[in-house]
Amino acid sequence: MKPFTYERAADTQAAIGAVTGRPNAKFIAGGTNLIDLMKLQIETPAHLVDVNHLPLAKIEEADGGLRIGALVRNSSLAADRRVRERYPVLSEALLAGASGQLRNKATTAGNLLQRTRCVYFYNRDMPCNKREPGSGCSALEGVNRMNAILGGSASCIAVHPSDMAVAMSVLDARVETLSAGGEARSIPLADFHVLPGEKPEEETQLRPGELITAVTLPPPPKGGQAYRKVRDRASYAFALVSVAVAGDRIALGGVAPKPWRATRAETALQSGASPVEAAESELAGAQGHGPNDFKIPLARRMILRTLAQSTEMARA
């Protein structure tokens, strides 16, 4: 691991100032992804600003919905009574991710900012445009069983690995941030992550030193909610394909560089199309790369099954 300096931030503005004013400085919260990447020298920050003691760990009622502090741990969020009753899709998605130990450490904001688990991003002996811009993408013609079928580019087909963010996407969440000088932004989650295009090293809209302070959820939509995940083992594995449904909204995980809101399928359903037609309209533009071709029919079946499950939940 490369050497770094460390400080514990006393307050939010001081934390933002400490990262904004210093090259190659990073916030650290749960650290479960960042420290792993530091051990592999994929992340090499020169300075870490520990934000764990900032007052951003509350879940509060806000405008008929919830405001989830950036430091709320994944396990606390999944166990929150209000989330379990009003946003069960979010609880289910969180509980489908990682392990008990990791969920106790991982935070709401950190989960959104975790990096891809593409095997080439992790392998420093192989080209990867995300890790080393301009070096090439090894996944396009390599081991891409876990990689994207939607939203990828000729530069990168890595997927965003979060379960939580897929549920937040279907719930129309927004990401609240603060920057130096006190500038606050509220960014729709749908726009928060950016597609790779020619710059896969850029993953979110965040500016240097900008700190996520909370994620807000509007009141839940009418209708049932459900989260389904298919993975290579029964527990503690990343999604091959996951689907979140809330009312008449659909989002997909494990298939794209960002939590993928299935707007084409939603539009089709609203105009009277059958679930099969809706799923096919979403996947019409999907592109497999050989080993991950199976994700296209799997995603179609998962959309249908999750829609049916959500309808059953609404009846129950």
């Binding site: 650290g31 520990d50 764990n52 106790n104 450490k105």
Partner: peptide
């Protein structure tokens, strides 16, 4: 928690 993914100074 897993103690390998957190720093002692934290």
């Amino acid at each position: 928690i897993v103690s390998c993914l957190t720093f002692a100074v934290m």
